[in-house]
Structure formats: C-alpha cells, structure tokens
Design a protein around this nucleic acid. Sequence first.
DNA 1: CGGTTGCTTGAGATCCATCAATAGGAGTGG
DNA 2: CCACTCCTATTGATGGATCTCAAGCAACCG
Lengths: 250, 250
Amino acid sequence: MGIDLETQLRSPFFDKLKLNAPLDHDDERALRAIVQPLKHYDADTDIFVEGDTPYAVLAIMSGWACRYKTLASGKRQIVALLLPGDLTEPFGALPDYVDYSLVALTSVMVAPIAPAHLRHLAKNNAHLESALWRDLLMTQAANYERMLSLGRRTASERLGHLFCELYYRLKRVNLVADGAYDLPMVQSDMADLLGLSTVHVNRSLQELRASRMISLIGRRLKILDLEALEDASFFVPSAFNLDRQQSLGI
Amino acid sequence: MGIDLETQLRSPFFDKLKLNAPLDHDDERALRAIVQPLKHYDADTDIFVEGDTPYAVLAIMSGWACRYKTLASGKRQIVALLLPGDLTEPFGALPDYVDYSLVALTSVMVAPIAPAHLRHLAKNNAHLESALWRDLLMTQAANYERMLSLGRRTASERLGHLFCELYYRLKRVNLVADGAYDLPMVQSDMADLLGLSTVHVNRSLQELRASRMISLIGRRLKILDLEALEDASFFVPSAFNLDRQQSLGI
DNA sequence: CGGTTGCTTGAGATCCATCAATAGGAGTGG
DNA sequence: CCACTCCTATTGATGGATCTCAAGCAACCG
C-alpha cells in the first residue's frame, strides 16, 4: 500500500479506465486492493508460451508486449499488441491454457490481477463494471480493425493504419508528445504483425517517409501529417472510440 | 412461455453453454425468462449497419449471419461468422454504436437479450457466469485464429482451415451429420471472409477437391479426410476447445 | 423466356515474397 | 582504441501467389 504501488497503479491502467466511466478515488482504492505485487519481465522474454496456464490477468503498467501464434511451418503472426494500460486477457476469465504466446517487446512491468477478484469488484461497482466492459469492447473493435487490415489493406495502408492506431492508443495513456511516440518494434516485428515480409515492410516504410506523412528515426515515430496518413490508410478514429456515452446498453 | 419458445431456446444457445459448465433445468429457465420475443430476419437483410445502436445482444437460434466491415475503397472484410448458438456481442455489454454491419446470410431466428439482464443473471449464478465467460474466450480464440489465417496462411490453407473450424463449431450444436454440413455461403462470401478474391477462392476450392479432402456440391460441404485437411491447413482443434475443465481461473 | 446470380476458365498484370548481398551501428573483448 | 560479431536496416533481382479483367456457362425465377 506504499506510495510506490499507488503511483504505478494510478498510471496507465486506471487512467484508461477512467476514460470509460466516472471513477473516483474509492474505485481506485478498491481496484488497487486486488492487485498483486508487480512483476517484471526483461525485453524479449516470454511471459507465457503456448500451452501454459496463465496465473492471472496482467495489466501492463509500462513497456510493450505482444501476443503471437505460430504455424507448424514456422510462420509467425502477432495477433495483439499490449500497451501500457492494457489487460492481457478479458477481465473476467482466464483460459485453462493458452494457445498463443506472450512475449515482452521491451522491459515490462505488469500488475497481476485475479479475474475472480475483478468480477467480484465489478459486481459491486457499476461504474467499474461499465469501464471494464467498455475496455473489452474497444479491444474487440481493435481486433476487427486488424482483421480488416490483414484481409483488405495494402502493405503501406497497413503500416499507416498501424501508426494511426498506435497514435490514438498511446495518446489515451499520455505516451504521445508532439505527435511522436516511441515505437519499440523492429521491422520484422511489424512484418509479423501486419502479415508481410520484413523486406516489404522496409520498402513500404520508405514510401510513407517519401510522402512526408511520417518520420521514423531510431525507435521514435513521428506523425508529420495525421490527416493525410488517416486518409491514405483508411483509418477511422471512431472505429476505436466506442466510449461516446456512459451508458452500457440495457 | 409456450412450448414453442422453450423448444427453440433449448436448442443451440443453451446447448452450447451447457458444454462449458454444468447447467441444469433451473439455469435454463432463468435464462429463458430474460429472452425477449424471437425475431426473424430474411436472408440477405441487414440486422444492423455501421453506425446503428444495437438494441440487444442477439443469440442466433437458427441460420447464419456475419459481421463485416468495409473500406472506403469498397473492399469488404467479413470479421466474424455467427452460427446457431452464437452471441452477436460479448454477453455483458453493448456498444453505443457499432462500426461494422451485421447481415443475415440465411433466414435467421434470433433471441434478443438485454446484456444488463444477462449480467444480472450471471451475478447470481456461478455456473452460468462461467459458461458465458468461457464462450467469450472461445470466440476470442477463434478471432486470433482468423488473424493467423489472414496474415500467414496461403489461400488453400485458409479455405481448409475454415472448413475444419466450421466442422467443429457446427458439431458442437449438432449440425454435422456424417461429416457433412450445410454451408450457406457463396464463393464471394468466402473470399471476403478469407481476404481473397472470388476467382482465387474458386481455384483453391478445386485444389481441395482434387486432393480428395472435401467435396462441396450445392450448399453441402462434406469433409472426406479430416486428418489430411487439418494437417494441410495447420488446423489445431485445441485452439478452439478451451473448455478442458470447469474452473474459471481464480 | 430474358434476366439475374453464381460458378468456372483464361490471360495478363501486380503486389509481395524470397534469396542474397551490403552496410551501419552497438556491444564486446583484447 | 581496434577487431570482431551480431543485429537491424537497406537494396537488387527474380519468382510466385494472387488479383483483375473478361468471357462463357449453368441454374434458377418471375
């Protein structure tokens, strides 16, 4: 219950929930009470792998992680990017075993939470319940958008769309400054996320740079012309912003 | 409360939930009590379209529907197939508006359910709660598999994988007889689902027929060699069967 | 019957993958 | 501080998977 934990929990996870429903200090305290001691994972280490039984739902406190699946042929597909504030699983349940792997893309701090505790909390706190469901719906919406990218967008559209998505998701948790954010992925990661080859990611990246919509130097991505990028990649911000009202559909 | 409604609700939706947790007649009755009058949609009619506010979570009682998104360029991507027993949305929440459309692929009967009622029911019935969450996890698993297909499987692998997926999903609700099931999709639907062109779906279909793994005549698909088809399309049944135990991960 | 819808086939174009090689850091050890 | 290695980014050349365009054909239907 020290300042340390409080500071860390206050950060992205609770902040993001607060965008979904009016939560006050009591809600925050209730949530904090069920968080287990934070855990740390080094970059490029597995959090769990295919076949594991997850020990808790993890709230990402800092750093990036991703969920991926592999084919027997060796091909890899990243199916979700987990950013600060994200939950690794739906808040109310844990599978007995997972059919995918979770890996830390950077050094990561996570807050393990027992889904049974979260469900219990939600049962007695309508605002929190609403916020958690809303978060789940947004995650689903992002999944559908990714399918649309994989199935129907061209390579540079996929890249552009990804950068827009990250822009909005990171802005929600205050990780965007001056239109720029850290992008701790190598090109082969982007390839596995977007269903492309590394070489082609490289070339598409150059297109986006050439048309002056983004700059990517080191691990820093800057969006130079958001509107143009959105148009070019068929990005619709509203597809991610489900939180128009506070109601939860009776 | 007539026999009619009882018979229909007993069918796929409740049956599928029963596979996830031990539910008895009382659970069934409680569930039936919150179902609103069934609604019917003709084939090829919209259930709702982008921008609509959904009036309820719909349990598909019979027939097929699908969720799709479109790009400004006109390209279409089906992001989910909704089969008998499926819920159109996560059981606990409804978005204020949807960024996709829902269309009936065949004549469809749906049971509208208010998520607030479903949540309330779940709060007082641990088995039902468990079954609903488990169902949600399975839906998620199917989504991840679809991403893997779209990103990393070849055309005929995608088709083969789809037929395996449908085989297992339909078997759960007793819609498979003698290794065969009705497939009420035209080739352009499959194309939009798998991120391919209609022409290429046609050609890949011929490959699968030539290798004697399936037969597709009229709207009836028969799996001739399940094992071969699974191997050829990197299908892993366990990726869809999350229901190994009855626990729900504390 | 004419019209529509879905399936099939051919030919050519395009996007993207694969293979292979080079180059630029960043770290490491001597 | 240099030699070495590893990792990532980059570039070129080639091939292949898939798309697009276009046409023909069968089944169905009012």
